[in-house]
Amino acid sequence: MAGLTPENLARARETVALYPQPRSALIPLCHQAQAQEGWLTPDAISQIAELVGVSAAEVRGTASFYDMLHLEPVGKFLIGVCTNISCMLGGAYELLAHAEDRLGIRCGQTTADGTFTLEEMECLAGCDGPTCVAVNYRYFPNQDESTFDTLVDDLAAGRLDGDVPCHGTVSRVDRTVTLMAQRDEVLAERAASDRARSERQAAKEAKG
């Protein structure tokens, strides 16, 4: 089981340094770790815990809240089929059944070669193109059984490598700059507004 690579560890340290509180970097670090392995390995979780100063249980607790952060290995391509109302009307359940047959796995499972994981998803906000399918969180709307088969073939053959990012990558943009506002400024502003509020309050009380 792998933890962060030395390069990613260095990048993680830089990310932590961007925030006034190390803890704020927890989720960005989960993204980085998942982009490396496709899921959050226990080793990576321990490393993140140490980097941001919380316990491993707290990292796991936070990560487990989000469906897009994986605590177990997923296939190279995570295929999600939306089954919410618009897609359902467009035949999402039929497509899902077809996908199960085509991939030879049940929803929630990963193919034996580790290439595909199939998931049922909530509305992907692609309702205008039912049925909407996401592969590694990149959208392929208007899918039916035959386009789905083509999609799977293309993925397997590597023809879509430019469009579909490496498994586990949720965000393709990494934060490299610190927060725009300076901490001192924020604090000073907050103090000023607190003061104003208590003055107003005092004035109100003085009036009776």
């Binding site: 316990s55 249980a57 707290e58 487990s64």
Partner: peptide
């Protein structure tokens, strides 16, 4: 060392 994992009706208290 213990925290809530997951959410909704699958929320559980757990350890790493």
């Amino acid at each position: 060392l213990i925290d809530f994992f997951s959410r909704g009706d699958s929320t559980e208290v757990a350890i790493a």
